[in-house]
Design a protein around this nucleic acid. Structure first.
Length: 178
DNA sequence: AACGCAATCAACCGCCTTCAC
DNA sequence: GGTGAAGGCGGTTGATTGCGT
């Protein structure tokens, strides 16, 4: 007895979006705005699940998305926020204008996670893998940040708040992204 | 040049939360 | 207050691309 599917799967496309589908979605949202994702596909002439439309719009089609590589500042903010919020990607994304939860999640899993592990830090707990009892996560986190800072970015993050970092990051990000 | 492997990214699935009735 | 529908979120998967052998 599973729950009822969110849409008529037999009549919906799956997989990569085509340019035509993207355009239909963009045109529809520009005209009608976001909302009522369930009925959107039908109204927009799309053979897609409403959830799929929402995801596509939020993650790739929204005009305010930054795209491109993450800056060092963003990198550090993500680590900081993750140490506070855990895998609450939408919360973290909310602190990073122009970034989506999916993007951050992917970036975490592919880049940051590995970096932390290379530094001997458990990405789940932000504690040292070797010395779990003696190394408070704050210390380990700052160790990572310092190491990263000195070796990669040259920008100091010590003593700054998340908001300050954010400001620096987004300013820098725009400057870099152009 | 061809093949295999690893890394990356886009998309889907299913659960949880919120909201309207 | 209970119920169902819809939206939102996080985890996971599959396809594609890049790199090394």
């Amino acid at each position: 007895m599973g729950r009822s599917p969110c849409c008529e799967k037999a009549h919906t496309n799956k997989g990569a979006w085509t340019k035509e589908e993207d355009q239909l979605l963009i045109d529809y949202i520009r005209t009608n705005g976001e909302g009522s994702w369930r009925s959107l596909p039908k109204s927009a002439g799309l053979l897609r699940c409403g959830k799929s439309c929402r995801l596509r719009w939020i993650n790739y089609l929204r005009p305010d998305l930054k795209r491109g590589n993450f800056t060092d500042g963003e990198d550090q903010i993500i680590v900081k926020l993750h140490s506070i919020f855990g895998n609450k990607w939408s919360l973290i994304a909310g602190k990073l204008p122009g970034r989506t939860d999916n993007e951050i999640k992917n970036y975490w899993n592919t880049h940051i996670k590995r970096k932390l592990l290379n530094h001997g830090i458990d990405p789940k707990t932000h504690r040292s893998i070797n010395e779990p009892k003696t190394a408070p996560f704050q210390d380990v986190k700052s160790t990572f940040l310092k190491t990263k800072t000195s070796s990669e970015s040259g920008a100091s993050t010590s003593g700054t708040t998340i908001d300050e970092d954010l400001r620096l990051s987004t300013d820098g990000g725009r400057a870099v992204a152009g």
